[in-house]
């Protein structure tokens, strides 16, 4: 579903990704963890077609990037650090705007379903600028799943969420994964990453340093492995 080979990305003379190899099967849930500056966000932005690789090959849903970026975007739902929402529009209007951009039919019904899924139906006519950080993040998830994408890319989606909102996000992500969608999520929370994902990849210095499948090691051992990999 997603494949990156010998991926290199530099900003000026500074290399961020240094020959990264990455592979995700259809329906897999993969968490990318790593220290700040490891290249997690840069890699996710390349997959999301928001940035172009300096060298190497990337294919998403079978389409090469950046050549067939529009075809890839149709299949992607993306949640970034920022909610990508308009504060002067209501929750419903934000979803209506994005629904029209993704050409979603029966949009009114779909918006109702999505707002129910993220628990914001009662606030649908409220302006997004009046929402808390947690509510904005929930609506951002709603925006990302509005067109029911095959692939969901999430860049530290739990950042700024309280316990309740984070638990709700976990439920949503499990539901998305259970319906056979492919999920790639970056995170700093090792416990949560191990709990949600089938595979945890540790990114360090622009490469996948190690990869652990669920059940290969005990969740309690993951922090130790992470420390040994990222403190070489």
């Amino acid at each position: 579903m997603i494949e990156a080979r010998r991926l290199i990305k530099t900003f000026g003379l500074k290399p961020v990704l240094r020959g990264l190899d990455f592979h995700v099967e259809h329906g897999e849930f993969v968490a990318l963890v790593g220290p700040n500056g490891a290249g997690k966000t840069t890699f996710l932005r390349i997959l999301a077609t928001l940035s172009k690789p300096s060298m190497g090959e990337v294919r998403v849903a079978g389409y090469p990037l950046p050549a067939q970026a529009t075809a890839v975007r149709r299949r992607l739902g993306v949640v970034t650090h920022q909610p990508l929402l308009y504060g002067d529009l209501t929750a419903e209007e934000n979803l209506r705007f994005y629904g029209r951009m993704y050409a979603v039919l029966k949009l009114k019904r779909r918006i109702e379903v999505v707002l129910e899924m993220v628990g914001l139906n009662v606030r649908r006519r409220d302006l997004v600028r009046q929402f808390s950080r947690g509510m904005q993040q929930r609506l951002a998830i709603g925006r990302a799943i509005l067109h029911d994408p095959e692939i969901l890319l999430l860049d530290e989606p739990h950042t700024g969420l309280d316990q309740e909102a984070a638990a709700m996000l976990d439920t949503l992500l499990r539901d998305v994964a259970d319906r056979g969608r492919t999920v790639v999520m970056t995170s700093h929370d090792l416990t949560r990453a191990a709990d949600l994902a089938e595979r945890v990849d540790i990114l360090h210095k622009g490469k996948i340093a190690t990869s652990v499948r669920r059940g290969e090691i005990a969740p309690a051992e993951l922090p130790g492995l992470y420390y040994s990999v990222t403190h070489d």
Binding site: A103, V104, V113, M117, G119, N121, L172
Partner: peptide, 30 residues
């Protein structure tokens, strides 16, 4: 907080994407 879970039949309904003409999609985006 309200229960976030919508009826399962609503979630399971497939999302229909308009695959009409490219120009129509272009105008719709504008």
């Amino acid at each position: 907080m309200t229960d976030p879970t919508p009826p399962m039949e609503a979630i399971e309904q497939p999302v229909v994407i308009n695959r009409g003409s490219r120009f129509g999609g272009y105008l719709r985006a504008i």
